[in-house]
Amino acid sequence: MSQIGSGQTTLAATINNLADSITLLSPVFIVKSNNLYFTATHIMCAAMGNRWYFINDIILLTGGKMQINCSIDVLKTYAASIITCPACITRAELGSPTYVPDSKLPVRAADKKLEVSTFQGGFTPDFNNNNIIVSVY
């Protein structure tokens, strides 16, 4: 799952050599071997517009070099902008359901709890009092 702006370990790598031409979204970096890359999750590349990249894979090369395959982390890169953009939030980590129907809510489809409330007033059955109406022409 993506997460905005909170990489585990960020290595501000210095690009000192490029394997070849690289893409902006999925660059491949050839770097000098450093064990820190094994624990890092992101690489921030200032030369590429301060973009943050996921470290997808590391290939150990001869000559004390490493080939690091990356992919863009747009959430981390643009976190500050994203949270300020106009949005329609349709699901959120709220405390309780809202009035928006939520078919995922874990309720029983047909098993319900009955509540009975009684009106004030009503009738008192009474056969004994003035309860006869004779309608005449």
Partner: peptide, 27 residues
């Protein structure tokens, strides 16, 4: 996430947890 309809930026919605949103990315 509880279903909701919040028309706001994420920051203004003060959401700290899970969020699903349609967003205007023009900015």
């Amino acid at each position: 996430g509880h279903a909701c309809i919040i028309n706001s930026s994420i920051s203004n919605a003060n959401i700290s947890g899970f969020c699903v949103a349609n967003i205007d990315t023009s900015g």
